[in-house]
């Protein structure tokens, strides 16, 4: 399991409009490309060889499954801001302001009163 690498995915996609568009439109293809050429990148000349996703992590990213990502201990800020970037507007048009954020919270209600999964890496 690589919480760090999941966070790197969320971090690199959230900060790049082109990646965000591709991850929104075709997450399956984009996650594969990310694993091949974006995730390992350290600089123009350097590639890392040491990180990889577990099948569970890969599936959560492909499925935009922010509940699973929360439960794996992905960082709460990255997990929220990336999926706001994808879902805020369509939810707003359909159901009004903060509709996505409220649905996000509702799907995690079973964690109220419990210690959340640690985001430490």
């Amino acid at each position: 399991m690589s919480k760090y690498y999941v966070n790197k995915f969320l971090f690199t996609v959230d900060r790049d409009p082109e990646y965000l568009k591709r991850y929104t439109e075709d997450p399956h293809t984009f996650v594969a490309i990310w694993e091949q050429s974006i995730g390992p990148r350290l600089s123009d000349a350097e590639m890392s060889t040491v990180n990889g996703f577990t099948p569970q992590e890969r599936n959560a990213l492909i499925n935009h499954d922010y509940v699973a990502l929360f439960e794996m201990g992905a960082h709460f800020f990255l997990n929220l801001t990336l999926f706001i970037g994808i879902y805020d507007e369509p939810y707003m048009e359909k159901s009004g302001p903060l509709a996505f954020q409220k649905e996000f919270a509702a799907k995690l209600q079973h964690w109220v009163g419990k210690d959340y999964p640690s985001v430490a890496t």
Binding site: F70, F76, Y116
Partner: peptide, 9 residues
């Protein structure tokens, strides 16, 4: 709370 069950109350 951000990205958790108590956000945006």
């Amino acid at each position: 709370e951000l990205g958790g069950p108590r956000q945006f109350m």
